[in-house]
Design a protein around this nucleic acid. Structure first.
Lengths: 265, 265
DNA sequence: GAGTGGTCTAGACCACTGT
DNA sequence: CAGTGGTCTAGACCACTCC
């Protein structure tokens, strides 16, 4: 015999999916409307609603009500993007300025894209020092990028990029957020200090969001995030950028294509 | 002011991480031990424990107790694996038999690896038919693989592979689970009916586990799974295999390396 | 201030596990 | 059967949002 909260969740799921409440619409009050309708206590009803929250079906807003979660902008990030970024570096600035990598991933036009960036410096902790192959404490330039769709409160994702400060300070323009968005992106920025990327390693995991990410990305507690550690290696074998990128798992797809060598005929 | 259940969860987290209870050890009873210690009601205490479950820190076993979750075997699956699989197809059977792809990912020896497979046929639903580019209802060979570490109850992951039945039935050996594990794996199986893989597309998302996956992979509710749709395309451009692979998000890392073309000097 | 969701309590009874 | 976690209730009070 299924638990009451399970049956209620299943019924609410069905009512949402059949469109009884359209996306963005407010659900009936927990108390007294839904508790009366389902003849359960408030605790039991809220347990059912918690399930729907963890599935990303509804949003709870304290003091306001519960809402059917509208479908959000999805991100589809393909591996071709890296070669695309690299090819773009040698285009004239006007072409580089026209569109960025995030537009590629989302299909959004530059006008619909919301963009925010913060620059800062920090000393490398043990983990980052190991990723770069430098001593702990080495000065790093940390840049945090948040991109999203205008009108949607939450960003689509958040990227924290680390560069070796002494490596990029050869071009002081690279040290200030005022120069963002930089036409041609990080690969072009690095090219101004003589760096060419040879290959990029992506390490992908899924995990529960941290409390911070729940706030900033508006991820319902219980929905997972995809966490990507991107390591860029230049043509001399040096690690030149380490970036940690986080997306809501339920609206992000990463696409990787592996080309295989032909067997000899 | 943090909620009580949050503070209690933070304290229990700390006590687990400092080793007050070692992995596998049983926690004190919810009632009366922990409720008395933290001076809260049972509901509040259980809410704190639910947080730890969703973080994968503890296991709850009804009728027995709560246990510190032991660290599990991790999987690290690299993109080089596909070329490795392809190169192996033309090795003599003795070498192909010696080790398989999962050993590569996990670092386990063949002796430590638990392996189970089920074969069946089904009619392609709309979604699979589209992936293959065939008509809905086309007969498919469905193969479900579960691999894990001997002694750990739960598999490390579960892979559901679909092949076009009429394509592989040219070699009847490919239709029966009794021939598994097949030395050289799927790429070798396909080579016996004249198929060479040209490239593979991986699409990665994260999502909450289904009720089934919670049981079979022993994923704590609230911990995410990584879901990978792997599409193999042969040298004539045909989609020849579609596989849906699911791993627990908290102990799987996927690694993808992208080699970029050099700029001209 | 009215109305909403968020937290917490005390206590009852059920379901599962091992002896 | 005893002991454990699982579900559920009724009611109290707090915190946030909007008018």
């Amino acid at each position: 015999m299924a638990a009451k909260y399970d049956s209620i969740a299943a019924d609410l799921r069905r009512r949402i999916q059949t469109g009884e409440w359209s996306p963005g619409a407010r659900l009936p009050n927990e108390e007294p409307d839904l508790t009366t309708e389902y003849k359960v206590s408030l605790n039991t009803l809220r347990r059912a609603l918690d399930l729907l929250v963890s599935e990303g079906l509804i949003d709870k807003r304290q003091g306001i009500g519960n809402f059917v979660r509208p479908a959000r902008q999805r991100t589809r990030r393909t591996t071709e993007r890296y070669q695309w970024e690299k090819d773009r570096v040698h285009l004239p600035e006007s072409e580089r300025r026209a569109t960025g990598a995030t537009e590629q991933d989302t299909g959004l036009s530059p006008a619909d894209l919301a963009f925010a960036v913060e620059y800062g410096t920090e000393a490398a902790n043990v983990e980052l020092a190991e990723a770069f192959g430098v001593a702990a404490g080495t000065r790093l330039l940390r840049r945090v990028y948040r991109t999203g769709k205008k009108g949607e409160g939450a960003p689509l994702g958040e990227s924290t990029s680390y560069l070796l400060y002494d490596m990029v300070s050869a071009n002081p323009d690279l040290l200030f957020a005022e120069n963002e968005p930089w036409p041609g992106g990080t690969m072009h920025q690095l090219s101004t200090v003589g760096i060419e990327i040879d290959h990029i390693v992506d390490e992908v995991t899924a995990r529960p969001p941290t409390a911070d990410e729940i706030d900033r990305l508006e991820i319902p507690p219980g929905v997972a995030v995809i966490a990507l550690r991107k390591t860029s290696v230049d043509t001399t074998g040096r690690v030149v950028e380490v970036a940690d990128i986080v997306w809501p798992g339920d609206r992000t797809t990463l696409v990787y294509t592996t080309q295989l060598k032909r067997w000899q005929p």
